[in-house]
Nucleic acid binder design. Structure first.
Length: 397
DNA sequence: TCTGGGGTCCTAGGACCC
DNA sequence: TCTGGGGTCCTAGGACCC
């Protein structure tokens, strides 16, 4: 069995680089893409010139503004434009390997196992990927190559910007050991301190801990995963087609609000956005989730599973508004509100329903459908509900 | 004092079924 | 009347990632 080879591509300061590419006068200057200074929000991405002032993604825009000099450029993100650039990059990468997994707008994994015979040694494959991106969109990327996804990802992070790092299987532990333990996936703001208070600082420190000790600190599942990662073990699979599982829309108000009409209108807007995307993608969801954040960042969700899956704006809105009204929340200042749908029907059952997909949303359930269920209910009284449900499932698949 | 928006995954409890 | 073990689905919260 031959060794797998995974490549991770990470565009350098993606949003900021697109803006600098399209506006030469921005080049060489600190530039921030994100919220408007003076308002609520964070930095989405900033140029390397801005990073020299300690500014980074997810930093509150108020703090970035305090740190950066007056000549700094502040821009609101143009997601549609960045998405178009992203699509061109992903298409270009398919010339390197047919197995491209888009992780986000500016990141991808490629399975390049066995490509050496076609292109050459791994370094040459990495350089080819960078060249292909530069030809397609005129941007630089950092590339990491390793035996699995974790190592490839950390390798692309190792030298930035415009880097290329190759980590072979026998170099994995030497590569991992000096890095801060927070590079391991799943060790974030809450769980990393659990290990740091034991005096652990690096991946090498974590690797010296036994599986039992890690499970004790982090729980069985998380402990097992961190143990594996610290030993350089991670998935080496690349999946080109991954289906999304939910669609949501939310917004943070400029100031906290209590106006019920405004809350209702905001949910109506969110339902239109979500419903539109769902219908574009030909999906119907059976779970509607309301999300609300009050003054003080106190956040709650409420969800409801529907008898009939939907993609209709009005239905999504009414369910979410109903969830809000069912609580004793009137009068509490709201910072954020939004909603989402998820829980798609299986493809087979959705296909069977296709004919009345959109009619059904307006006209209610199909009476013929009701008759079928009545018959099945009669059968179920004889044989028990369990067998009925299994029987229906099987027919759908 | 500040903390966006769009996601995924995990946990844990309760209802319900066999 | 009291009992268990396995399984699925639903719900709420929260950690984490880009």
């Amino acid at each position: 069995m031959s060794q797998r080879l995974i490549m991770h591509i990470d565009l350098d300061a993606f949003f900021a680089s697109i803006e600098q590419r399209d506006h030469p006068e921005y080049q060489g200057r600190p530039l921030v893409v994100g919220a408007e200074p003076g308002k609520r929000g964070v930095v989405a991405t900033c140029s390397y010139e801005a990073r020299r002032y300690g500014v980074h993604s997810a930093m509150p825009i108020s703090e970035a503004f305090r740190r950066l000099p007056p000549e700094t450029i502040y821009l609101r993100p143009d997601i549609a434009r960045y998405g178009e650039v992203s699509r061109r990059i992903m298409t270009a990468l398919e010339a390197i390997s047919p197995l491209v997994e888009k992780v986000s707008v500016d990141e991808a994994f490629l399975d390049i196992s066995g490509m050496e015979r076609l292109i050459g040694p791994p370094e040459r494959i990495g350089h080819r990927a960078k060249a292909v991106i530069h030809e397609a969109v005129g941007l630089t990327a950092s590339v990491g190559i390793g035996p699995n996804r974790l190592i490839a990802k950390l390798a692309s992070d190792y030298q930035k910007p415009d880097g290329l790092t190759l980590v072979m299987a026998d170099q994995v532990e030497a590569f991992l050991d000096p890095q801060p333990l927070t590079v391991l996936r799943g060790l974030g703001a809450k769980s990393a301190p659990l290990l740091q208070r034991l005096g652990l600082r690096t991946v090498g420190d974590v690797r010296r801990l036994s599986l039992q000790e890690l499970r004790q600190q982090l729980g069985v599942l998380a402990g097992t995963k961190i143990h594996e990662q610290a030993h350089g073990i991670a998935s080496d699979r690349v999946h080109s087609d991954s289906e999304r599982k939910s669609i949501s829309k939310e917004t943070t108000f400029g100031r906290d609000i209590t106006d019920q009409d405004l809350l209702r209108d905001t949910l109506r807007w969110a339902a239109q956005e979500v419903g539109y995307i769902a219908r574009q993608e030909g999906r119907t969801g059976n779970t509607v989730t309301l999300k609300i954040r009050f003054r003080g960042f106190e956040t709650h969700t409420r969800s409801r599973t529907l008898a009939t899956p939907t993609a209709a704006d009005l239905e999504i809105f009414q369910q979410a508004w109903g969830l809000y009204r069912a609580e004793d929340w009137q009068g509490r200042p709201v910072r954020l509100i939004g909603l989402g749908i998820g829980g798609w029907e299986s493809e087979a059952s959705q296909g069977a329903r296709q004919g009345d997909l959109f009619d059904g949303m307006r006209s209610g359930p199909d009476p013929k459908q009701d008759r079928i269920y009545e018959t099945l209910d009669a059968i179920s009284d004889k044989f028990g509900r369990r067998s009925l449900r299994l029987g229906v499932r099987r027919r759908k698949e």
